[in-house]
Nucleic acid binder design. Structure first.
Length: 715
DNA sequence: ACGAAATCTTTTTTT
DNA sequence: AAGATTTCGT
């Protein structure tokens, strides 16, 4: 058995096995080590066998890491079941497909599938305006997280708007069912209902899983909590680990109450607190603690650092996002020359859009970097195309995926032809794949198009046969690539198309790798696994990591840069909508980011920033909240994180005759100023032939000359 | 049917 | 500002 150094609390958490256990683990307190040691111990002393353990982590990567560590103590041939909550649910649903009565080889729709489906749906329903695809989807997701069915949602609807949404929900579910497809939320809700409605199945899993361990419990939702409650039998010991200060998924239905009220739902729960932080220096930890102490709704805890105070946390003000990126990359490089490998450093930001500047700066400096998440590999056009073909092969009812690729590459079947095809194929009451073979006979399809569809049908049918004979995933991929000419549409001479070809190749080798690891998985298994990869799963630790704060959860780095500490960006504020920003969650998000740092932490803040075509900026209020924990700052000139720059809400007006400075045009005088909604339409003389007309929201105008000492952007 | 140009929506965060 | 979608011309 692996002997690891454990402090008394950790040891207690590892060794306690008399019932349920709640581990409140602060950032960097070694919870992964505890979970791993706990599993290894259970198996090492023969308390239970590997098949009796179910471990659910937040990413597949974490699960694999745990597997790796447990494998030292256990025969790798019989490994406990480890994965994310969602992948465990899909495993269950596929395993029990027969008894639960849904198609075994269902497709899992990801965000972009959902969106395109919803767009089509909304168009076909011709509803009163005000319902956007993403709005409808997030509303539906909310309903599912609360276990509300479409019928119940319809009953509960109080306003016409809600009623319309409920109808969309109903129709959306109908389309999913038609296509034999699930979305991410369905994986959870269907698992729960499957367990609840089939007590025989439930009891089977109850007696199988005698130890269930769940990581990051603060970010689970009601459905996940209910699944856990249902799955835990009388002899099951449940261990959950979490930290209410690190709850950052409230917006998608996660409930911190799950962890805080865990002892109520699991009677006799023992509670262990891990409050010793082994990761960060004292200075980093006290800055992070100072920040999060501003939250009211928390179970206050004290994290103790065992490390030196280290270097102070540094706040760096820069003029603009390009400067921010430049400064960050330069600083990272200087750490590199002093011995810190780039792959132990990370730049964290609030929104994916912020990655661009950093990417550009890295390229200019020629340093290796890795953008984690932003444009996910499996969501690239060319990869998505292959995946869609594969989905149709495994699940021929997936009309959504077929419609994506039916004319890719171009087969001479346009919008009208596709419509006609779908109408006639379904009127024939025939399999979509069989329909392809008959396409020639459908009206509205050109003879060339019909022939191409026939050919496509042959290729797909042939693939279906191969799958049923147990062909490996990569064999099918090769067959599809050869039969559809997907690769031929790209020109290897073109730079971007060359990348697409490389991506196709990468996808192919990804599948080949899967085949090696899962000789019995085949194409269905491969698709199931592929659909549930998380953003972090793709992170290969190759260079300077660029990722969102959400994505950084659970990771740690020697040096961390957190970008964009500006009011409106972090905390993020949506000004137009009525939804009040959850300030406390934003604060926790920054807290999570700060506690990723082991040795050095930098926070950068821009004076001005373009976002959605508008300028906005102003230092984040969080800087002021942290400042008490920062050492006396030396450069007093602009050190006060207070509002030295007015916030966007400032009522500063513009008046005729004022002298201002524009970043591009330089000095100019305002000839006329007119209110335009939230902004000002200004006519300004910059000394060119004609005065320029400028909207105040589009450029930071610096006031010059008047009011000495109050020079700064005017909003 | 298909590509180019004009117009419109849109961004928080992710399984 | 960028991206997606619609419209328009061939």
């Amino acid at each position: 058995m692996i002997e690891v150094h454990l402090n008394p609390e950790q040891r207690e958490a590892v060794e306690y096995d008399d019932g349920h256990l709640l581990i409140l683990a602060g950032a960097g307190s070694g919870k992964t080590r505890v979970l791993t040691a706990k599993i290894a111990r259970l198996l090492g002393n023969g308390t239970v066998s590997p098949g009796n353990i179910l471990a659910m982590t937040f990413t597949n990567k974490a699960a694999r890491e745990m597997e790796r560590r447990v494998a030292v103590a256990v025969d790798p041939r019989s490994m406990p079941r480890m994965g994310t909550f969602h992948s465990t649910c899909l495993w269950f649903l596929r395993r029990e497909a027969g008894r639960l009565g849904h198609g075994e080889n269902c497709t899992v729709y990801d965000g972009s599938d959902q969106k395109s489906l919803m767009r089509k749906l909304l168009r076909s329903m011709s509803l009163p305006g005000g319902i956007s695809p993403s709005g409808a989807l997030s509303w539906i997701s909310g309903q599912k997280s609360e276990l509300t069915t479409p019928a119940e949602a319809l009953e509960d609807a109080l306003t016409p708007h809600q009623e319309a949404l409920a109808r969309v929900y109903e129709a959306y579910q109908a389309v999913l069912a038609e296509n034999n497809a699930f979305d991410f939320d369905d994986l959870l809700t269907l698992t729960l209902s499957g367990l609840r409605q089939n007590t025989d199945i439930r009891d089977c899993y109850r007696s199988r899983f005698l130890r269930i361990l769940v990581d990051e419990y603060q970010d689970t939702n009601l459905v996940q909590h209910e699944i856990l409650k249902t799955l835990a039998g009388p002899d099951t010991h449940v261990t959950v680990v979490g930290d209410d200060d690190q709850a950052i998924y409230g917006w998608r239905g996660a409930r911190v109450t799950n962890i805080l009220e865990f002892p109520d739902d699991f009677p006799g729960t023992r509670m262990v607190r891990l409050e010793t932080n082994y990761r960060s220096t004292g200075n980093i930890l006290s800055a992070a603690s100072a920040l999060v102490s501003h939250n009211t709704g928390r179970h206050g805890k004290t994290l103790r650092s065992v490390l030196e105070n280290g270097e102070p946390v540094k706040v760096q003000r820069v003029a603009s996002p390009p400067d921010e990126a430049e400064w960050t990359v330069m600083t990272a490089m200087s750490f590199q020359t002093r011995g810190t490998p780039l792959n132990r450093m990370a730049v964290l930001y609030r929104t994916n859009a912020q990655s661009r500047e950093f990417e550009a700066a890295c390229r200019r400096s020629g340093i290796p970097y890795e953008v984690v998440g932003a444009q996910r590999f499996f969501e690239r056009e060319e990869v998505k195309d292959i995946v869609s073909y594969l989905r149709v092969i495994v699940n021929p009812r997936d009309a959504e995926s077929l419609s994506r690729v039916i004319n890719r590459p171009a087969r001479g079947v346009g919008k009208k032809g596709q419509e006609s095809f779908l109408r006639h194929a379904s009127a024939d009451g025939v399999h979509l794949l069989t329909g392809l073979g008959r396409a020639c006979s459908y009206p509205g399809i050109t003879s060339r198009g019909g022939k191409a569809l026939e050919e496509l049908g042959d290729c797909l049918n042939r693939s279906v046969e191969m799958v049923s004979k147990g062909a490996a995933a990569v064999e099918i991929i090769d067959h599809v690539l050869a039969g559809t000419g997907l690769k031929q549409q790209y020109d290897p001479g073109d730079v971007t198309e060359q990348t697409r070809l490389e991506n196709i190749e990468e996808f192919r080798s990804f599948a080949a790798q899967y085949d090696i690891g899962n000789p019995n998985g085949g194409l269905p298994g491969f698709l199931a696994e592929q659909s549930l990869l998380t953003t972090q799963d793709a992170y290969s630790e190759q260079g300077l990591a660029l990722m969102t704060l959400h994505c950084a959860k659970g990771l740690e780095f020697d040096v961390v840069f957190i970008a964009g500490l500006e009011e409106g960006l972090l905390p993020h504020i949506r000004q137009d909508r009525d939804a009040p920003a959850d300030l406390e969650e934003e604060r926790r998000l920054l807290y999570v980011g700060m506690t990723r740092a082991r040795k050095r932490l930098f926070l950068t803040s821009c004076l001005a920033r373009v976002q959605q075509g508008r300028y906005r900026a102003g230092p984040s209020r969080f800087l002021a909240e942290i400042s008490s924990a920062l050492p006396e700052s030396r450069n007093s000139r602009d050190s006060s994180p207070g509002p030295s720059i007015p916030c966007p809400s400032g009522e500063d007006g513009f008046s005729k005759g004022e002298i201002i400075r524009h970043p591009r045009y330089g000095r100019g005088m305002i000839l006329s100023a007119r209110r335009r909604g939230e902004e000002w339409e200004l006519s300004i003389d910059f000394g060119f032939d004609e005065p320029k007309t400028i909207l105040s929201g589009y450029a930071p105008l610096i006031r010059e000359g008047n009011a000495p000492g109050r020079t700064g952007p005017v909003w």
